[in-house]
């Protein structure tokens, strides 16, 4: 427990900052127009301003109350997000097989435990399954293997 709700204070400030950025960016970069005939910038500017207000309100109320300490996981999000990023990097140039293998391998590392046998079985099973479902079953035009060089 914190004496003050620092988690919600940070959340409120982040919200207000995001809203402020949106409102300022929209009103400087895009045409606001008039209320009768609104330009592309008006609605985002209003929405951003509301977000500034709500974020400020959250931060202020959080200042006057005790709050819980958030539990933050570091390694898990890194592995999980890296596995998706690996898919994004591999899919166009190398095809589906390497991409699926990369996702399975990197995502499994998030367990922080190596299970070589089950990992190999899982990867093989997923490759087979995605091949059966996507190119074969649904007729998607995604090559299984590709060599860009």
């Amino acid at each position: 427990m914190f004496e003050r709700d620092y988690r919600d204070m940070a959340a409120g400030l982040l919200m207000a900052a995001t809203g402020g950025f949106v409102a300022i960016y929209a009103s400087t970069q895009y045409n606001l127009g008039t209320f009768r005939n609104m330009g592309p910038g008006m609605f985002p500017m209003l929405a951003g301003s509301v977000l500034v207000f709500l974020g400020g309100l959250l931060a202020v109320t959080a200042f006057f109350r005790a709050g819980p300490m958030p539990k933050i996981r570091i390694s898990t999000p890194i592995f999980i997000l890296a596995s998706i990023a690996a898919f994004a990097l591999l899919i166009r140039n190398f095809g589906m097989l390497p991409a699926v293998l990369a996702v399975t391998l990197i995502a499994s590392l998030a367990e922080l435990k190596m299970r070589p046998v089950s990992l190999v079985l899982l990867a093989a099973g997923l490759c087979l399954m995605t091949w059966l479902i996507f190119p074969l079953g649904l007729g998607l035009n995604i090559p299984m293997l590709r060599w860009p060089f």
Binding site: S83, F87, A88, I91, V100, A107, K113, L126, F134
Partner: peptide, 29 residues
């Protein structure tokens, strides 16, 4: 530990298959 990598694989392929765009997968990240 067998389930979640499978779900991730389907998420990636699903996001990619809509427009064959790697950008959509980056948006998932």
């Amino acid at each position: 530990h067998l389930l979640y990598p499978s779900v991730l694989v389907f998420i990636c392929i699903g996001a990619y298959s809509v427009g064959y765009s790697a950008f959509d997968v980056w948006m998932v990240v």
